Amino acid sequence: MASPVIQGDFRESDPFIALMDDRLTKQTDQPAGGPHPHAGFETVSLLLEGEMGDDAHRMEGGDLQLMTAGSGIIHTETIEGKLSMRLLQLWLNLPKKNRWVSPRVQDLPLAKVPTLTQDGAEIKVYSGSLAGLTSPIQNYTPLLIADIRLQPGATTVQHIPASYTAFVYVLEGSIQVGDEAGEVHQDQVGWLNRDSTEPVSELRLAGGKTGGRLVLYAGEPQGDPIVSYGPFIGDTQDDIRRLYQEYRQGKMNHIATVPASQRILW
C-alpha cells in the first residue's frame, strides 16, 4: 500500500514534488515490480525495512538511494521473496539549469550513514549537514534528510537554513516540535515555518510519552514552475511530450548502463 505523505500545491512544497510511504507485506515468492522510466527530477529512496532492488543496486533496511533521472533513465525496483517492506520515496525537483543532466545514482548503505547518539537522541544524517554530521551524498538541490529517534522526554535542538522548505514525518510514537511544543503523532506530518529574513532557524524536538522517531526533510526552494505528468517532470508541456516520445522510441537507457563515474557507492 503506497500512501501519499505530501502532495498538492508544488508552490508551497517546492522543492518537494511528492513523498510516498510504501508499505508492503509480500506473502508469495513471485517477484514484484519492474522497469519504468523517469526524467527531469530525482528520486530519493529511504528503505526503512525489508530488501529491494537488483544485484547492481540492492537495498536493505536503513539504506538510501538517490537517483538523478535528469535527461531520462529507466530503472527497476524489484521485490523478491516473502517479506515485509517499508519504503519512503521522495520526488525532488532539480534546479532548472540541471533538469536535463546526465543520469546518476548514489547508494548510501546504513553502515556509512553519519550517526550521533547523545542524551537520549540518535541522529542519522542521510543528506546535507545536521548536528555536526555531514553526509557524503552529492546534491544538485540542497537537501537535508535526517532520521531522528528520541527517548521519552529527550530533547534535541538543531539549526537548519531558515529559507528551506522543511517538514517532519513521524514514523513511531510522537514528537513535540518547537517552543510551543506542538505534538505530531505517528503517520502525521508537521510543516516548519520558512523565514527569508534570517540565515538559520532553531528546531527544537522532544520525544513524547513513549518516545518517537521522525524523518526530517528540508530543501532549498527553486522558485521555478514545473509541469508534472506520469513519471516525468518538465518545464513545459512540450518537455513532457518529448520525453514520452523518447521513451517509446527506446532512447532512454537503463540505469545499470550508466558510466561507472555516475554510479557511486559511498
Rank of each mutant, 00 (worst) to 15 (best):
S3Q: 07
D9L: 03
I17T: 03
D21I: 00
R23G: 03
T25D: 05
T28K: 05
Q30H: 04
H36Y: 13
H36T: 04
L46T: 07
H57Y: 15
L64V: 06
L66I: 09
G70I: 10
I74D: 02
E80A: 14
S84G: 03
S84P: 00
L94E: 06
P95W: 15
K96I: 04
N98C: 09
V101K: 01
P103K: 01
P103W: 00
P109W: 04
T115Q: 08
S129Y: 00
L130H: 01
Q138C: 02
R149V: 13
R149C: 08
V157W: 00
I160F: 03
P161D: 08
P161W: 05
P161F: 06
Y164W: 10
G173S: 12
I175S: 06
Q176F: 15
G182P: 08
E183P: 12
V200A: 14
S201M: 11
S201P: 02
L203T: 04
L205C: 14
A206F: 07
R213H: 12
L214I: 11
V215H: 09
G223Q: 10
V227P: 00
G234M: 07
Q237A: 13
D239Q: 12
R242S: 13
Y247W: 13
K251S: 00
M252W: 06
N253I: 13
A256C: 14
T257P: 07
V258W: 06
V258N: 08
R263W: 10
